[in-house]
Deep mutational scan, measured.
Amino acid sequence: MPSETPQAEVGPTGCPHRSGPHSAKGSLEKGSPEDKEAKEPLWIRPDAPSRCTWQLGRPASESPHHHTAPAKSPKILPDILKKIGDTPMVRINKIGKKFGLKCELLAKCEFFNAGGSVKDRISLRMIEDAERDGTLKPGDTIIEPTSGNTGIGLALAAAVRGYRCIIVMPEKMSSEKVDVLRALGAEIVRTPTNARFDSPESHVGVAWRLKNEIPNSHILDQYRNASNPLAHYDTTADEILQQCDGKLDMLVASVGTGGTITGIARKLKEKCPGCRIIGVDPEGSILAEPEELNQTEQTTYEVEGIGYDFIPTVLDRTVVDKWFKSNDEEAFTFARMLIAQEGLLCGGSAGSTVAVAVKAAQELQEGQRCVVILPDSVRNYMTKFLSDRWMLQKGFLKEEDLTEKKPWWWHLRVQELGLSAPLTVLPTITCGHTIEILREKGFDQAPVVDEAGVILGMVTLGNMLSSLLAGKVQPSDQVGKVIYKQFKQIRLTDTLGRLSHILEMDHFALVV
């Protein structure tokens, strides 16, 4: 994948999101292997301009796509893939009243899908469409860049269908997702969380590099694949309309690839034109409109599966009536509230959605109805927002919020430890010299600072030695090549209790 991002070429006709291997024109390309080798690009942008032909009021008969309808489940399912879809609609009884809503608040519980998330729908649909058009064949390999849930859905379907599955996901995604993927037989590649989507090191860039190296491999490409919004247009939206008897006044959905909100909203605009569509985008993402909503100094966020630093091709923002931004604290607070007060075992993005819903639905009156999409299960986040310690460490809970008995030293300040200034190293000294210094002084790690004293990161003896043994660096290389740029900081005025929580999850903390 090139470091400079080429513009994806656009073909003359058809839909841009065809499933299957992508040609340089962004659509299915038939021909000899030699032709494909000559024409197939190194990668295709996940934010390529959409060429979708959908228009409100256009006859369904003019759609270029294969459409399906929700099917009634048999008493005995032939395999677990038949437990994807037909998820329950559940009334939220307490939270709406707590925040003064007059309307009825309903939750579409997508964590009841077989793999635990709304992404099971698009995973199965992308595979079925690729099999139907002859792209996927027995023994082929599926590769997908994902925040985890699409990966789980694909790995689940691949396990049943017999495909090899490789999932490329950023490091910030939970260990629970990784464990589930491994249990399903998927191979996992992790990428830096802070890598831009168009960087060769991003999950998108690495996935395309693997595709170019592995024979008979395919990126189904949830960011561009029409099967993504079509899955929701054909099934999720129809289920909502049936469950609500066609009567709903507002739908609120958090947005990642945009397939969920695009597919549902398009069908609702056709069948229930008075329904307002509300999009939820986390602070630090750029999906919301108008652009002024996205202006923030924050560039990272903890909530998973929603928000991006690019506009995915499948996201149709014209069908969203209003956007709201959400933050991590309210997302996790509301997710825990949904679990504790409503018994809905949902993930953090569901918290984002409901946090926005109780604001947006203030305009609705008694007798009206708001539906929220709860995308995934708490299963993926047992060591994250479900953990009091994690919430404390991230600053989303305060010590006084917890009532468990603490040891005698818990409320003492870090400054009472009488710490001395640490050994520091410059980023320009060599790895070999740094190892000598650390061994001589008896230290395992040291902060790396520039000549102005600005902290650049941390270097550890173990990481340097393993990097040297693996051949990633040489003793003569500058130590700046092996620094940890993500590390926890703590102030002298913070409590030892807070430091204790940090050290339970990290090997060190830097006192500043």
Rank of each mutant, 00 (worst) to 15 (best):
P6E: 09
A8M: 10
G11F: 04
T13P: 09
P16S: 03
H17N: 09
R18N: 10
S19E: 10
G20K: 12
H22W: 06
G26K: 10
S27Y: 08
L28I: 15
E29R: 13
E29I: 13
E34L: 01
D35V: 12
K36W: 06
S50A: 08
S50T: 08
C52F: 03
Q55H: 15
L56F: 14
G57E: 13
P59Q: 09
S63R: 08
T68Q: 13
P70W: 11
A71I: 14
K75A: 15
I76P: 12
P78R: 02
D86H: 11
M89G: 03
K94C: 14
G96C: 13
L101R: 00
C103W: 05
E104Q: 14
L105A: 04
L105C: 05
K108L: 01
C109E: 00
C109P: 07
E110N: 01
N113D: 04
S117V: 04
V118A: 12
D120Y: 05
E128V: 14
A130W: 02
G139F: 12
D140R: 06
D140F: 08
I142A: 02
P145C: 06
P145L: 01
S147V: 00
G148L: 01
I152F: 02
A155R: 02
A157Q: 06
G162W: 03
Y163F: 06
R164F: 04
I166W: 02
I167N: 07
I167K: 08
M173V: 04
K177E: 04
K177L: 00
V178F: 14
V180E: 06
I188E: 04
A195D: 01
F197T: 07
V206C: 07
A207C: 06
W208L: 09
W208D: 12
R209H: 13
N212R: 14
E213D: 12
I219Y: 05
D221G: 08
Q222M: 01
S227V: 01
P229D: 06
H232W: 03
Y233W: 12
T235Y: 14
T236W: 01
C244P: 05
T257L: 02
T257Q: 01
G258H: 00
G259M: 00
G259I: 00
G263C: 00
I264V: 15
R266S: 08
R266N: 08
K267E: 09
E270A: 11
K271Q: 12
C272N: 04
C275M: 09
